[in-house]
């Protein structure tokens, strides 16, 4: 088929609603936020605008609120992502390699957290981890923690990590099971006949072949938790805070649109970076691993 000028115009027209929608509803707000972060636009409609780096200076102030927020949201989400990676890998191996009665039911149930609203998941974990909640009490009874130890709204964000793991684990499992399905089963059999036991095969064959999906999945899970709002809002403490919370407070409670926009810009840069890495990894996988 020749893709003449007319043909190309037609293709463009088919995509026009999509492009139009996102231009108005997504690209415009992002451009405005970017302009606001430099003082060139006023999201809060305060009149007068002029170029300034004042908001960026405020954000990058060493030891200030924002650097703490950025650092806290980063390491806290990274820890959760790491825990998810390990648990999800074990679960994916379990679901992919082991056949048992009732497997269908278990594979349906483990996905439920994917569909529960974040806010509810966060709140459910709050009721469990707050002093007097089932898990907090159980751990205190075991003597692992004190009776008044805070597992929610604490400065390490323990509650945030727990809820984030619960929410995002199934997503990672789904992704990894998909990656395991792509491995030709005879490769695994070859490894077994060559003298490798199951775990040795996991280490030498299965894991190396799933690294791209593993990294890509971890990146997606990370950015989801890094920018999440509900979980740190319900389970986070008053210090340090996630950056999503400081944005909300700056903009909604205090009308500080400038520094709020800078944080939003940081989020967007992180998102674009991760999207870029993700597509690159996926493309590499399609190119290299196809034969298998």
């Amino acid at each position: 088929m020749e893709a003449g000028k007319f043909e190309r115009l037609k293709l463009f027209l088919y995509m026009l609603p999509l492009i139009g929608f996102y231009s108005v509803m997504f690209i415009t707000p992002i451009v405005l936020i970017f302009l606001q972060s430099l003082g060139l636009y006023s999201l809060g409609h305060m009149g007068e605008t002029h170029f300034t780096l004042e908001y960026y200076k405020k954000f990058f102030e060493l030891g200030g609120t924002y650097m703490h927020a950025l650092w806290f949201s980063t390491w806290n989400s990274a820890v959760a992502a790491l825990i998810i990676a390990v648990l999800a890998y074990l679960m994916a191996l379990f679901f992919h390699f082991i056949e048992f009665k009732g497997k269908k039911i278990v594979t349906a149930i483990y996905k439920i957290p994917l569909f529960i609203p974040y806010l509810i998941s966060a709140f459910a974990w709050w009721t469990l981890l707050t002093p007097g909640g089932y898990i907090q009490r159980f751990l205190a009874w075991l003597g692992i923690i004190g009776e008044t130890t805070q597992l929610v709204n604490d400065k390490f964000g323990i509650g945030i990590i727990v809820a984030n793991v619960w929410i995002n684990l199934p997503y990672m499992v789904v992704l990894l099971v998909g990656a395991l399905k792509m491995i030709d089963p005879s490769i695994i059999e070859a490894s077994r006949t060559l003298g490798a036991g199951f775990w040795s095969t996991v280490k030498n064959v299965i894991f190396p072949l799933t690294i791209p999906s593993f990294i890509a999945g971890s990146l997606l899970v990370f950015i989801g938790m890094f920018g999440a709002f509900s979980v740190p809002f319900i389970l986070g403490g008053s210090w340090p805070k996630y950056m999503s919370i400081t944005i909300y407070e700056d903009v909604v409670d205090r009308g500080e649109w400038g520094v709020g926009s800078v944080q939003a810009v940081v989020y967007m840069i992180a998102a674009v970076l991760i999207a870029y890495l993700y597509t690159k990894i996926m493309r590499g996988m399609r190119g290299g691993g196809e034969r298998a």
Binding site: Y22, P29, G44, G227, Y248, W257, G260, A264, V265, A275
Partner: peptide, 21 residues
């Protein structure tokens, strides 16, 4: 790939722009 980005950008980030609009 661009259609992915709205899923990856934290809603709170794009949300303040939408709020203003």
């Amino acid at each position: 790939n661009l259609v992915l980005i709205p899923l990856i950008v934290p809603p709170i980030a794009s949300g303040i722009g939408l709020l203003s609009m």
